[in-house]
Each structure stands twice: as C-alpha cells, then as structure tokens.
C-alpha cells in the first residue's frame, strides 16, 4: 500500500482525479447557488448580441411603376419608372425575397423586397471599442513612458523631478478618479469628447507604469556598456540610442506586454463616462434582458479571449527572443 502511494504514476492520477472533482464541485456549486435564488438561465439570448441576422426591407422613394427586374450576377436590379418620368435603380442581393413584379404600380414607401444580413452585435462593437482604446492608449503610453523613463534617470533635476512627480501622482491615485478628472475637468476645459478624454486618461496612466518598466530595463543593463560606449567618444544620446536602449527594449518586452494586458482590463473603467466598451455593452444587455449572469459571464469570456491570446503571443515572443540571445 505504501509502495503504491510512492509510485509517481499513481500519485499523478490521484492528483488528476482531485482536480476533476474540484472542477465538478465548482460548477455544481454555481448551479446550486443560482437554483437557490430562482435564477433562470437564458444563454440563448446571448448570441444575438455578438452577431445577429437583421431584416432589411428595401422600399421605393417615389410613386411609379416597376419597369424591369433583372438578375445581374449576384444582385437583383429593380428599375422603377417614376410618375414624373425619372428612373430609380434599387439593388438587392440574390438571396432577397422580391415582393413586386414588373408592371406593378407603387406608392412611395412600398416594399420592393427584403433580405437578411449579418450584423455585429453590441458585444462585438464593445470589444472593438475596448481593443481600440487599449491599442491607442498603449502606443501613446509607451511613448510617454519612454520619455518619462529617460527623464527619470537623468542627472539633471528638472526632468528627473518632473518625471518622479508624474509617476508618483499617477501611481498614487485610483484610475477611476483620474478618468473622472480627465473627463470632467480637462475634458471640459479643452472641450474633449469622452473618447479622447478616456484615451488621454488611459495613456497617462499606462505611461507612468511604462516609465518605471523602462527605467528598470535601462538600469538592468550593465554599467560597463555605457562606459564602453562613452569611452569610444559617443555622447550620451548616441550611447543611449545605439547601445543601451536596443538591449533594454529587448529585455522589457515581456513586462511591457504584461502592462498592455493590464491596460485592456483597466480600460473597463471608461464605461463610466458613457463609452460603450465591452463592459458597458454587458451592462446594457443585462438591463435590457434581465440576464445579468449570462451577460457578464460572456463579457468576462471575451476579455479572457483577448488577454489570454495576447499572453500566449508574448510567451511565443519570449521563446523566440530567448533563442536569439
């Protein structure tokens, strides 16, 4: 019996069974919990908020007569001769139901035909907004962070203390409060849209963290590198540009990517200033369907897809860079 317990294979299979039991337990617990509060799951309501088929009806704009209906390639082309002598052309896809025939008399607003078209739902629109805000703020944040990081390690007091104050100010206050300040104060003064205010708030927020990453990256490069560069007659900017930064940037890629993943999650806070990002989309769905569980589980899953695929990509990059060292 004891020997059996010390067998690695046996112990691993035991461990696997425990894992499966725990996972089953968690799902069972969730099921029980929702049963207790009489929650009715309506997952079937969710897909339409990702992609849905929209009915599109094509109507005439003027009174007239249907002159011709022609199938050209994969579109129907309907020509309507108006009473005043002019001709109007309407194009419908081949899949459309045509509800008129040649020679029919029509009034303005009559239906010519209808078809179904795939549309992106509010969740995908929100996802796109989240991605857009994160990417723009991420890029701006890297620029701000690079400049601030270099200023932070400067021996000159003005850039150094400006950088320190900025970093401490941003890192010492909640992002939510920063977003409010950018929206209500800076946004009002400079008449910014809520999206611009959000991008600025996120950029300055990310910039402070990137600055610390950049500083740590530069300081992790051995002092001898700078000395060797300077001893060859390079000035400080040249040595930074060609010797220190290329090495430091390579080293800070992983933490930088981690910061970007955080930024994606942090961007959910902009939903409070009337921007329909992924989180706001979830809230809208939950209020219109009364299915908050499904709505926010879906939102969480979409965030997870974004962040998880990014972190997989980062791991791939790390492996590639490690091989190139």
């Amino acid at each position: 019996m004891r020997d059996l317990f010390y067998n690695v294979k046996v112990r691993h299979s035991l461990s696997w069974s425990i894992l499966v039991l725990i996972v089953i337990g968690v799902f069972f617990g969730i099921g029980k919990a929702t049963e207790k509060i009489d929650y009715i799951w309506q997952w079937n309501r969710m897909p339409r908020y990702i992609l849905f088929k929209d009915d599109i009806t094509v109507t005439t704009e003027e009174d007239g007569t249907v002159k011709t209906i022609e199938g050209k390639g994969n579109v129907f082309s309907i020509t309507v001769k108006a009473l005043d002598g002019g001709e109007e052309n309407y194009a419908l896809p081949a899949s459309a139901d045509i509800s008129v025939e040649e020679g029919d008399d029509l009034y303005a607003g009559d239906t010519l035909g209808s078809y179904k078209k795939w549309r992106v739902g509010i969740l995908l629109l929100g996802l796109w907004m989240t991605l857009k805000l994160s990417v723009i703020s991420g890029v701006l944040g890297i620029v701000i962070g690079l400049v601030t990081g270099l200023a932070r390690i400067s021996s000159s007091p003005a850039p150094k203390w400006l950088a320190i104050s900025y970093i401490e100010l941003i890192r010492g206050t909640p992002l939510l409060v920063q977003i409010y300040i950018f929206y209500f104060f800076i946004g009002q003064v400079f008449n910014l849209s809520s999206q611009t205010a959000a991008v600025l708030a996120l950029s300055f927020f990310a910039g402070a963290y990137v600055a610390e990453i950049v500083r740590a990256g530069i300081q992790s490069i051995h002092r001898g590198q700078m000395e060797a560069a300077r001893s060859l007659g390079m000035n400080y900017p040249l040595a930074m540009r060609y010797i220190i930064l290329p090495q430091a940037l390579k080293r800070i890629m992983p933490p930088l990517a981690g910061q970007f993943i955080s930024l994606i999650k942090d961007s959910s806070l902009v939903s409070i200033i009337a921007i329909t990002d992924l989180t706001k989309a979830g809230r809208e769905i939950s209020t219109s369907t009364f299915s908050p569980f499904e709505a926010f589980f879906t939102v969480a899953a979409l965030y997870l897809i974004l962040t998880f695929s990014l972190s997989m990509f980062v791991q791939y990059l790390e492996r590639r860079y490690a091989a190139g060292d």
Binding site: E227, A228, L232, Y242, Q247
Partner: peptide
C-alpha cells in the same frame, strides 16, 4: 577627447546585441 583615447576593460564590455564587425564599426 575620449575619441582620441582608447580604453579596454577587464570585463570586455562588448556590445552583445551587435556582431563583432558592428562592434568595431559603430563608433
């Protein structure tokens, strides 16, 4: 002045992200 004074270090301090040739041509 430094451009006229060559220095060689105990720990070599070659630039690891550059080839040998680039190390010698960069300055």
């Amino acid at each position: 002045v430094r451009a006229e004074i060559g220095m060689v270090f105990q720990s070599f301090n070659l630039f690891p992200h550059m080839t040998v040739l680039a190390n010698v041509t960069i300055a």
